[in-house]
């Protein structure tokens, strides 16, 4: 079936809702993250970073159209601001860069492949973008380079695990509930099941 490449209203609203749920979860996560960062420092905080890239990856995986990752992250950031994030400015800037990071990877695969390695790569790109932004915004240049490198390492790892693997796991669990039948992921899942019936 021929697919239109632009997102329709239904997809946008669904994306907004998913991101909004993440927005709420982010608020809880932010709190956790600040505690971890406060105690363990940015290196430990880096481990939390992948969570912020989950919204764009989940949405991109569900909708599989250009722009989904970027817009999802923007909407998530926007929602976070509207619920009253203490950190609106940084959240928005980070939203743009993180979204762009993930989006670039999907674009490189021409929005055709959404397999686990691609998702992990996108997660890494997202956290990398996040790292670069924070580096400038929060003055990481003032720290010992070992700390900065370690932080980059943990962030990338978190990008692989949380943003890549966990997003994949949760999205497919979601697809099994049948609520995604009307979206790209539901359709491809259905076709796959049809080809290899009940194993």
């Amino acid at each position: 079936m021929k697919q239109k490449r632009t997102m329709n209203l239904r997809e946008i609203v669904v994306m907004a809702f998913i991101s909004a749920v993440f927005g709420v979860l982010y608020l809880i996560w932010i709190f956790l993250g600040q505690m971890v960062t406060g105690v363990l420092g940015p290196v430990g905080g880096g481990l939390m970073a992948g969570f912020w890239i989950m919204a764009p990856i989940v949405c991109a995986l569900i909708i599989q159209k250009p722009g989904a990752a970027l817009f999802a992250e923007l909407i998530a950031a926007g929602t976070e601001v509207m619920v009253g994030s203490v950190n609106a400015g940084s959240v928005l800037i980070l939203g743009v860069t993180q979204g762009l990071g993930a989006e670039i990877i999907f674009a490189m695969f021409r929005y055709r492949s959404f397999k686990m390695p691609v998702l992990m790569l996108a997660g890494m790109a997202g956290t990398f973008a996040s790292f670069v932004t924070q580096f400038a915004m929060y003055g990481y240049s003032q720290y010992a380079s070992i700390v900065v490198w370690l932080m980059l390492g943990t962030m990338l790892l978190s990008g692989i695990l949380l943003a890549g693997w966990a997003s994949h796991y949760l999205t497919f669990a979601l697809a099994r509930t049948g609520v995604l039948h009307n979206f790209a992921i539901g359709k491809s899942e259905y076709q796959r099941n049809k080809q290899e019936p009940a194993s």
Binding site: R10, V14, F17, I18, A20, L170, L174, T177
Partner: peptide
Amino acid sequence: MAGAIRKA
């Protein structure tokens, strides 16, 4: 999420 998607 499932509830959110249905609502959306």
